[in-house]
Design a protein around this nucleic acid. Structure first.
Lengths: 254, 254
DNA sequence: ACGTCGATCTCGAAC
DNA sequence: GTTCGAGGTCGACGT
């Protein structure tokens, strides 16, 4: 970290931080020039500049949620010191864009090696996921008609969603909030096998989850089951407008 | 500025900075919980937090152009220190949202009083493009006579330029600063259709943009509309001599 | 690779 | 206040 450094010294510090792909933070008096899809010029003033490990650049003024200027990840950098000014040039190729930040004074420059393995999760539980799919069965397949949720099968537990497709075939949907593995496939298959013995007609099995694990692809195909990718984000969007609604309103029969 | 401060001391520092409406920068190990229009949870990890003078909050991880969590301007703050952890709670009322940042370690905390009166200017905006075409309608077509800008149509929004061609036909010009797609074609068509019902005479529709996207060629032809390529560079050249001129001087009527 | 669509969109202007 | 449209939109997903 440098406090009120000479700009020449700052140049080396910035270059080094960028080369090491650290997170770089600079506060100082600068101008910013942008050329690309549009073009803009920001006159002298004190701002906070953030350069991230992936080459994203942000220029923040004292006000406003959004950066006044920026560069998306994977920018290439050119740092120079000329005529008493420190210049950081960040360029990207597609689309061709450049942002040039010229400092005449730097208050602070910091380089941070952030350790951050924390998971970020938009919060949707498996229960909420089911609610979303009950409100919008078309997320699984157009034309799907609901029959019941949690259809109980004495010997083999219960299914998540029990429905009928456009051609009148029974459909069993097994929901997983996490990437579905072979165990989920086998669980679904047990439901299907039990059901087939009771209802003398075709039964389809669909696994609905954000992802299908690599090891589950082959068992799924072999058992004649299907997979439908369902994102948690989409479920959350579907749920938002319906937060208080009763589920029972959405069944044809129950 | 504090380096690796005790969190208790950090609490006072943060409170003071927020009270003075300075720009606050904190780097440290934290979790972030968001509740509001959506909800999310971010597990422990090192991030950079920026709080601006207008009460905007940004939480940045080491990767990515956009903040992982944020609060728009005008948030209200509650800072506390409990059980060895520093908590910054930022709340806004409409819509009801809160973001809670809990630190178990702070590497650096800075408060900055940024002096920034510098002007920010976009050079060629869609508005400026329109000004250029109003000054030089011949860029669209020789003999074009202006009638009005932004002609309002109650049901279908408004046009960008409203004019008359050499043969007395009405001309509606829709301006796009970026390559025009199918959406621009349909928007222009809505204007035309609405207009035709009101003025019992021929109406031409011209899309003026730097480019016409491939996917827009066929819809344009099918709807009997036209395209005129207008470069931003040319617009900029046209505008340079006219920077202060009033628009009203350039209309024949109204 | 490109087109379409959602976003805790944000931001500003018009009504 | 609300609504509407633009954005250097950005990003994800489908083709």
């Amino acid at each position: 970290m440098l406090s009120s450094p000479e700009l020449q010294k700052c140049r080396d510090f910035v270059s080094s931080a960028l080369k090491q792909k650290r997170v770089l933070l600079v506060a100082g008096n600068c101008t910013v020039t942008y050329e690309g899809r549009a073009s803009s010029k920001l006159d002298w003033g004190e701002r906070v500049i953030l350069v991230k490990s992936d080459g994203a650049v942000l220029v923040h003024r004292k006000f406003g949620h959004k950066p006044v200027n920026w560069q998306p990840p994977n920018a290439q950098f050119h740092v120079s010191f000329e005529e008493g000014q420190l210049t950081i040039l960040a360029v990207r190729q597609k689309p061709p864009e450049s942002i040039k930040i010229v400092f005449r004074e730097v208050a602070v420059a910091m380089s941070l090696n952030l350790l951050d393995e924390g998971e970020f999760a938009m919060h949707v539980t498996e229960e909420q996921m089911k609610r979303a799919l009950l409100f919008e069965p078309s997320m699984i397949e157009p034309g799907l008609k609901l029959i019941a949720e949690e259809h109980h099968l004495a010997d083999a537990g219960f299914t998540d969603i029990y429905a009928e497709d456009g051609e009148g075939r029974l459909v069993v949907v097994e929901i997983k909030r996490v990437p579905a593995g072979k165990d989920a496939v086998l669980q679904l298959n047990r439901y299907i096998e039990t059901l087939k013995k009771r209802v003398n007609r075709p039964v389809r099995g669909i696994l609905a989850a954000p992802k299908l694990k690599a090891g589950a692809v082959e068992p799924l195909a072999k058992l004649g089951l299907e997979f439908k990718a369902v994102s948690l984000e989409k479920c959350f969007q579907v749920l938002k407008p319906h937060t208080g609604t009763r589920l029972t309103e959405f069944f044809n029969s129950s």
